[in-house]
Nucleic acid binder design. Structure first.
Length: 560
RNA sequence: GCGCCUGUAGCUCAGUGGAUUAGAGCAUCGGCCUCCGGAGCCGAUGGUCGGAGGUUCGAAUCCUCUCAGGCGCGCCA
């Protein structure tokens, strides 16, 4: 429905002005009463043409009338497209489609015509999305979970939109945090065997550290006793980090998401890519020495200050492998790189963007999405978590409590850069206050309608319900059909904005129309013609629900 | 001190490169069960879009200042 309007507008605008227009804005009006679709294009043109918007809008409308007159004359079927085209407000053009046109579009949506549900806007462009990348020094927490849900949904969204997407997890398996994990576990091991050993001040303190220590002692007690402390620490560190990474991989699997690539930080060191990347920057004169340290001139690209890459002692900073990592991303030849980070890392953005530019890539080819914190409520009251004691609510606990599907949906219900509150009482509720349930229930309900309808239609000798009679639809049904037909546009906008939460919102809107409708009207009745029409409507809803839920990574249950 | 994010109905939040008469869900109040799943539905109440200026024919949206909350500002990761 958007496609045809866009084409008509493109031609109409071409008629009234010479220069090509880069963008034709088509909006979904705020209020349904305004029309099915609208365009503020006359107002955007007003400045350029130095003419009042209303005059331009009038000209465009006239041009459209001419175009569709020819269009309709040319076509054998002669379906009129617009029911109403009107100038509104200070220059909006509102369009309302005819019932015939909409029903025809509905046939397309439910698969009576060979058309894909959504446009290919990616055109095989390559995008990498890096997300989660939680340090393997502890279990995944809720923030990681939100990043995971977002990254996976974004990947679904973009690959469905025709992009080639790679999902990557960057494993911080080198560096101080891993060492600290090892020492923390080592200290606990000592305590287990009755040896007094100082626990590091900034060590990891969660219960899982004790578990790791116990596991290690069960498996390697003899080595712990016999070998030198230095060697044992190495062993413990390696053991602990592997166990944690395994645990994270299990969390991710049980959350129902997957990665295409696991990039190890250690490997970047081993293959010399860290030193190579700094050499490369040096050749381009972006590196200098000062105070015994090696600096990257990130200020050239707008960073607040230059950043140290090699410390005075000759050790690399955390930033150094990140340079190598982003160089690797660039070398892989993606058209766009998306990093999903916790919002507390926002201060890191300018220096990474600087790296991208120093490597000769445009600043905008790297997009960093920030994910804000998630706080848990129970019955409206916040659940306390004390980070100090190393105790926080893990993703696994929440999945076990409310299920992976519900968790994903709720993580995608808000814009990522807003704080999110999840009330687990609500999340567990099997009622309309639980938005996940409400949406899934609609799908299950439609399914059950179809199950029932199957028998009825066969009994009356009618096979397909695809040849429905659109004249039988009432206003409420037309409203739902319009909503369903907007899906491709919602999808496209969500994909272009890289914002999966728009799908979540849309799904709630569709189901918000369906449930009341269901309450008022029987789909399956003795009137076979009417039944067929209503089934077509249900099928349209079912299709958009399935598609949308698939993007979110949430099951569309046949029954609940 | 500097930087980033947020501030829209009692609560949680939409509002897509200004633009038509500010929206939704929940909560609250009042209704609805002969019927495809009541795990539901209908109706009502409710906002000077944190505040003040400015740009504009027009601002929740852009600019400046300001208030409040969160988060960052290491040769930590």
């Amino acid at each position: 429905m958007e496609k045809i309007l866009r084409e008509i507008l493109r031609r109409a605008v071409g008629k009234i002005q010479v220069s090509e227009l880069d963008r034709i804005e088509i909006e979904i009006p705020r209020e349904e009463g305004f029309g099915d679709l609208s365009t503020p294009i006359a107002m955007s043109l007003a400045r350029r043409l130095k003419m009042p918007p209303k005059k331009i809008a009038g000209d465009i409308i006239n041009a459209i009338r001419e175009i569709i007159f020819h269009l309709e004359k040319g076509e054998a079927e002669k379906t009129e497209i617009f029911d109403k085209i009107e100038l509104a407000g200070s220059g909006f053009i509102n369009f309302r489609f005819t019932r015939e046109f909409l029903c025809n579009e509905l046939r397309g949506l439910i698969g009576e015509k060979e058309e894909p549900l959504v446009d290919n806007i990616g055109k095989d462009k390559k995008i990498q999305i890096e997300f989660v990348s939680a340090n393997p020094t502890g279990p995944m927490h809720l923030g990681h979970g939100r990043g995971a849900a977002l990254g996976a949904a974004l990947a679904n969204l973009l690959s469905e939109a025709g992009y080639i997407v790679e999902k990557e997890y960057y494993v911080n398996d080198a560096g101080r945090q891993i060492k600290l994990l090892g020492i923390s576990v080592f200290a606990r091991c000592n305590q287990l065997s009755g040896v007094d050993y100082p626990f590091p001040d900034d060590g990891y303190r969660g219960e899982y550290i004790n578990d790791l220590a116990r596991e290690f002692m069960d498996e390697h007690k003899e080595r712990f006793m016999e070998q030198k402390a230095e060697d044992v620490i190495k062993l413990v560190t390696d053991f602990s980090y592997r166990k944690m990474l395994e645990a994270i991989k299990r969390d991710i699997e049980d959350f129902g998401i997957s990665f295409d690539s696991w990039q190890s930080e250690m490997e970047l060191y081993k293959r010399g890519e860290v030193s190579q990347s700094i050499e490369e920057l040096k050749k381009q004169d972006y590196i200098y020495e000062e105070g015994g340290a090696t600096w990257f001139k990130s200020t050239i690209f707008g960073d607040d200050k230059d950043r140290v890459v090699v410390k005075k002692g000759g050790e690399y900073t955390y930033f150094a492998p990140d340079i190598a990592y982003h160089r690797k991303k660039v070398q892989k030849g993606f058209d766009e790189i998306i990093n999903i980070w916790g919002a507390d890392h926002h201060g890191y953005i300018p220096r990474i963007k600087a790296v991208i530019q120093a490597l000769g890539y445009p600043k905008d080819s790297l997009k960093i999405l920030l994910v804000q914190m998630v706080s848990l409520l129970k019955g409206g009251r916040p659940l306390q978590m004390s980070k100090r004691a190393g105790e926080f609510i893990t993703l696994r606990e929440v999945i076990d409590e409310i299920g992976a599907d519900t968790t994903k949906f709720l993580f995608l219900i808000r814009r990522p850069d807003n704080h999110l509150e999840v009330d687990i009482e609500v999340a567990k509720a099997h009622s309309h206050e639980n938005p996940v349930f409400y949406v899934q229930y609609a799908h299950a309900r439609i399914n059950s309608i179809f199950k029932m309808a199957k028998g009825v239609l066969h009994d009356t000798g009618y096979g397909s319900w695809g040849d429905f009679n659109g004249k039988l639809f009432n206003n409420e049904e037309m409203r739902i059909i319009r909503k369903c037909l907007l899906y491709p546009m919602i999808f496209k906008n969500a994909a272009m904005a890289r914002e999966p939460h728009r799908i979540t919102f849309y799904l709630q809107e569709v189901t918000g129309l369906f449930h009341p409708y269901y309450q008022r009207h029987r789909v399956v009745s003795e009137d076979t013609e009417l039944t067929k029409a209503r089934l077509a409507l249900c099928e349209a809803i079912r299709i958009v629900l399935r598609h949308g839920l698939k993007i979110l990574g949430v099951k569309a249950p046949e029954r609940m």
